[in-house]
Amino acid sequence: MTKMKNPEDVPGAFQAAWNNHDMAALGDLFDPDATFVNRFGHYVRGIEQIVALHTPIHETIYRDSTLLNELIDVDPVADGVAVIHFWSRLTAGAAHPAGPHVVDTLILAVLTRRGENWRIRALENVTLTNPRTGEAVLRG
């Protein structure tokens, strides 16, 4: 099981699971009743559905992709509950139908602590786009 002792550990643990294309490790990051909204607005609930959402893309279009995550902030909202935001840069490789390219997203996650470990209870991923044109925007 992936150990996240602090909320600040979440972006790095998510990045490591993604970059290793290890869907079991990805599932370990989440609370059993967690929700996940991907950058296209697809909503799923529970570890099994979160892993099922990611497994096929890691076997195909994202099999050579990597993430680079950067923590923005941690907001403790109650004992054992925190909200975090982090930047996530997806670098897609040659396996993607659009070819190699980069996408920046902003991730919001609600975290809960069980014992000494933190888990993601809810995560939403938003692609950075120009609202007037719909074109992808890369942050500086």
Rank of each mutant, 00 (worst) to 15 (best):
I57Y: 13
T60Y: 06
L26N: 01
V51W: 01
D28A: 11
F36A: 05
F40C: 02
R39L: 08
V51A: 04
T66K: 14
A52F: 09
A34P: 02
V44R: 04
F40V: 08
G27F: 01
D64Y: 07
Y43P: 02
I57G: 02
V77L: 08
Y62V: 01
R63C: 07
N69I: 05
A78W: 04
A34H: 05
A25I: 06
D33S: 10
R39P: 02
V44F: 08
L71A: 07
D75Y: 07
H54I: 10
D28W: 05
S65T: 14
E48N: 12
T35W: 09
L71Y: 09
A78Q: 09
V37A: 11
P32K: 02
A52D: 14
L26Q: 03
T55M: 07
Y62P: 00
P76L: 04
H42T: 15
V51M: 06
A78N: 04
L53D: 09
I72W: 02
L29R: 04
E48R: 14
G46M: 00
V37Y: 02
E70L: 00
G46D: 02
S65C: 15
I72H: 07
P56V: 09
A78R: 07
P76A: 07
R63T: 10
A25Q: 12
P76Q: 08
R63K: 15
T35Y: 05
V77G: 07
L71E: 10
H54C: 07
L68M: 05
A78D: 12
G41D: 09
D31C: 05
F36K: 00
D75V: 10
G27W: 00
I57M: 15
V51K: 05
L53E: 08
